[in-house]
Design a protein around this nucleic acid. Sequence first.
DNA 1: ATTGGCACTCACCACGACGGAGTGCCAGAG
DNA 2: CTCTGGCACTCCGTCGTGGTGAGTGCCAAT
Lengths: 341, 341
Amino acid sequence: MQEERRLAVLRAIVEDYVATEEPVGSKALVERHSLGVSPATVRNDMAVLEDEGYITQPHTSAGRVPTDKGYRLFVDRLTTVKPMSVAEKRAVSTFLDGAVDLDDVVQRSVRVLSQLTRQVAVVQYPTLSRSTVRHVELVALAPRRLLAVLILSTGRVEQRLVDLEADLDDDVLADLRLRVNQTATGQVIADAVTALRGLGEQPPTSPLAVYAAPVVNALADAMSDYRSDERIAVGGAANLARYGDSFDSAVRPLLEALEEHVVLLKLLGEATSGGMVTVRIGAEGPYEQLSATSVVATGYGPQDDALATLGVVGPTRMDYPGTMTAVRAVARYVSRILDEA
Amino acid sequence: MQEERRLAVLRAIVEDYVATEEPVGSKALVERHSLGVSPATVRNDMAVLEDEGYITQPHTSAGRVPTDKGYRLFVDRLTTVKPMSVAEKRAVSTFLDGAVDLDDVVQRSVRVLSQLTRQVAVVQYPTLSRSTVRHVELVALAPRRLLAVLILSTGRVEQRLVDLEADLDDDVLADLRLRVNQTATGQVIADAVTALRGLGEQPPTSPLAVYAAPVVNALADAMSDYRSDERIAVGGAANLARYGDSFDSAVRPLLEALEEHVVLLKLLGEATSGGMVTVRIGAEGPYEQLSATSVVATGYGPQDDALATLGVVGPTRMDYPGTMTAVRAVARYVSRILDEA
DNA sequence: ATTGGCACTCACCACGACGGAGTGCCAGAG
DNA sequence: CTCTGGCACTCCGTCGTGGTGAGTGCCAAT
């Protein structure tokens, strides 16, 4: 009985604190929420909640503020899924449907997500590891230089300049193009890399010998290099301005992190699939300096295959239910678009 | 005589204010710079400078602060070119030399520039308007869908998905590819667009009729669309954290501007070439809200052809000589790289 | 034209008083 | 055993107060 009410109190505290950004006291609580008990009772509950570590008071005789542990409990057990408004849904779909290519999809996603959550949004470009090679194109740029273009099943296009040690011959180039495509097209990129390596080792007598190696290297480089060096898009940094207070403690380290894409990737964490949204609260994350920020993320990809991750970062004091549904919705929608492509 | 000293005083004020970020008084001035006159004299000079609008005092009986007009005079007449240190030069060259393709060059430039100036750096991707079409590739993705890849002389690659109204035939595709390349390759993109439009109008009897139009449209779209929607890279936003004070007045609007690439492009302004660095100070710029920020920019491109612009944005109170040389140096270096490619 | 002197002006800081929100505890009621 | 009303206490934030010091403007002297 009392246990239930205590949780209700915690929920109320979190909601009020998120809304007002100010420590919330017992009196204000019973006024704003119809808990059906008196402030004194709430005070007792709050004392217990504080003992258990779910809330603290910044100073004696100030209201209470949720701790990381409090937010955790709130997220795990107290959130009621809040559906998106029709207007929001339409906004997402119309905005994302206008995308012309994969890059555009990602960039638009960042935009919608940051606008929807009024937070900093981060979207990882779909990982290549599971994608396959659609086509390889070799284009002569100069007598001894060509451009290798790699087209992947996700629609992503990678390019590499290749310098040769001998002048190009159109016929040889055509031959090489044919062979490379025969070897790589349709393969998952991991397999394509090994297959190509084989192709690179031509008997020195073959007219291909001079060209094959550098081209193969460039392609393999583009593939494997790209797999680890995963790109991401960031948007909504202007929302950081809303922090107002706590500039040094929260905004500065976050601004720094936003430029370090490696950090961001680690922050987003492992992609989870199937509509599961991961929430990492404050110090639960891997970075000391970001102990005042939370991450709400989820995986996305065709067939809900979690090719990549998207999410938002924001202050621990954030609207978790709203953010979670927004993240989930955008992930779903992007996944569906990738399905179609 | 006095006129000269007054300018020296202005220079000293600007330098001190930039260094200390605090209003500078007459006594401190004569101590830090060997002006050879007494504080009282300096005070008289400062009174004149204030009358002429080059400096102001934030409050009565506080030190003086340069006005926009003061910075302008400083930049136009009082800056002594400050060469970069050898270490800095080497840092720029080694960092930029590692770039693998055009995108990488741009991204690395942003990084170096922001680190060098400790300011927010902005680099516009080379404009396409003067670049020529190197090659067009058409790749079948599905029976009724193909990917059009546009390769330009700058090394940039654009892609567009094309949906067809009839199933693809390999021969027709090859024919189309050939024709498109014959029409477009080597042309400046403006010309390529008109030439392609002609190609799009096939007699309905031709087997090409069904395919040509959508493909041509996609390509023309990619070209003309891209010309206006110019991309830019931004870096060093973390340096905004150094503003510390004046958060609302300076950081917030700037953060907002950084996401609006259109705004940034306008801010960078027209590309200037030939080593000329443009400085726009505070309210001289086109945006009311950015009246506390200055822009230092210059054009760059192969043969110093000002294909695009790069620069930094920062507080009006910034180290103009240092920033100008850094911007100039990076622009030179990037131009040289583009020359080679 | 420059300088030293002098009175004046404020921003800034430290100090202390005070009001108010909020708490913890206790005794009484259900 | 749980809830409630009352009460004393704590402490943050704010506001006025006065002192301090950097800096100025003006003036008479050099």
